[in-house]
Nucleic acid binder design. Structure first.
Ligand SMILES: [Mn+2]
Ligand SMILES: [Mn+2]
Ligand SMILES: [Mn+2]
Ligand SMILES: [Mn+2]
Lengths: 226, 226
DNA sequence: AATAGAATTTAGTGGTATCTAAAAATAATA
DNA sequence: TATTATTTTTAGATACCACTAAATTCTATT
């Protein structure tokens, strides 16, 4: 249908749009590791195909059609990630790379079969919601672990999946989605965070704590929850 | 490593080489549904990369390096076909198309995991041998069902997997690999063939019988076996 | 308001892979 | 052998997607 490049751009636009609101040429070129001029060229093409709207020098926004395709590819991606983890035991830091390629050549029939084999799941191995076939997606309201305060406990909701090193680091202390933990202490000025998972204690760097999103916060009020 | 196009050409060259011996520009262009000029262009590129040897107007032949890659992709293809059939219940007439795309983006790690999950299989759903990781492959000596004579019984060894219609047709009468059957009658001049599979009788057209390969022939001597 | 810096776009190029049309080489036939 | 037919190659064009270098536009600062 569409080229792999087009699909990757649409996916990137969706993700930047959700994270930053505005989608600039530079942010796209950075996320996809291409030169800014390449992003401009593709933006022009996407715009002609009515997949995005674009005002010169003003960034880009997905149209309904563009978002539909974007969510379709994200669905592929996340179903694949979960399938690889569940059915073939691929570790959670490796599923992303594999899915990044496979997502573009997955048939609708196989998509459905994997969906059924997994019992119609709603989350991928990193906790990210899996879009439905008709293009709707759950919006998460979880907050970075880094914004918690000492004494609070919470449940891991989602972990950013773009850096395998982060996933291995976070996985070593058992911080998988749905895992409950407690913040024992948190040093000011973005200091290290001491947490307790199950029976064991871990120290978590602030750089990592920014990419672990949590929900179900219990205990004293968090400053970031408002 | 190599482009999808290069991999598809190498795979096609391997298959034509096995079937016809000589690999002409036209046979390649036909198998890959491209113009003869396109095949000539790719042959030039493959030749420069030392993946094939080529004498102008004389056809093409895989080098050791070319065959290695070719068998690597065929291994991907057949492992994928079997995995889809076994693990996800994809019917045998659909696995080929899915594998045709996926084979190019399968990682070595996932290849190994699928291999292990399947118990290190040696045949794909159509009976074709799966090349080993180091690039060796079993040579089959089965003959077309069409060459059998009345009264003989045999076992299906391999069915050509390029035409989904043929696979559905053949599948309807249960002629899957390893299935034993008996030839009840065979009309001369490429006439229809009456066979018995399990307890039921079927009529098989000669066009199809040419693409079903059999082994383990019992009964009166077949004219094609010498 | 003028200027400096950053972001974005334009212009021109290269690699890959395809195509059509025409030329060249080989093979088949009269 | 000469002619015709088939096969293969060459020539030239298009589409896609990336790049660098330079020009343009926007933004922030003085
Ligand atoms: Mn991708
Ligand atoms: Mn993920
Ligand atoms: Mn292929
Ligand atoms: Mn097969």
């Amino acid at each position: 249908m569409y080229t792999e490049s087009i699909e990757d751009y649409l996916k990137a636009i969706y993700e930047i749009q959700k994270e930053n609101g505005k989608v600039s040429t530079n942010s796209l070129s950075e996320m996809l590791s291409v030169a800014p001029a390449s992003a401009t060229g593709m933006i022009k093409k996407l715009s002609e195909k009515k997949l995005v709207t674009h005002k010169r020098y003003q960034g880009v926004k997905l149209t309904k059609a563009g978002q539909k395709i974007s969510l379709e590819i994200i669905r592929h991606h996340r179903l694949i990630e979960l399938y690889l983890a569940e059915a073939l035991g691929v570790p959670w830091d490796q599923v992303h790379e594999e899915a990044e390629k496979w997502e573009h050549v997955l048939s609708e029939d196989l998509e459905d079969r994997m969906d059924a084999a997994l019992g119609y799941p709603t989350r991928d191995p990193h906790g990210s919601p899996i879009p439905s076939r008709d293009g709707t997606i759950l919006e998460l309201d979880s907050i970075p672990l880094a914004d918690l305060r000492a004494g609070q406990s919470a449940v891991v909701d989602e972990v950013s999946d773009h850096d395998p090193d982060l996933l291995r680091y976070v996985g070593k202390m058992g911080l998988y989605p749905k895992t409950k933990f407690k913040v024992l202490s948190i040093e000011p000025f973005n200091g290290p965070i001491k947490i307790k998972v199950e029976k064991s204690e871990h120290i978590l760097g602030p750089g990592a704590a920014q990419y672990v999103f949590v929900t179900d916060i219990k205990g004293s009020k968090s400053e970031a929850s408002q």
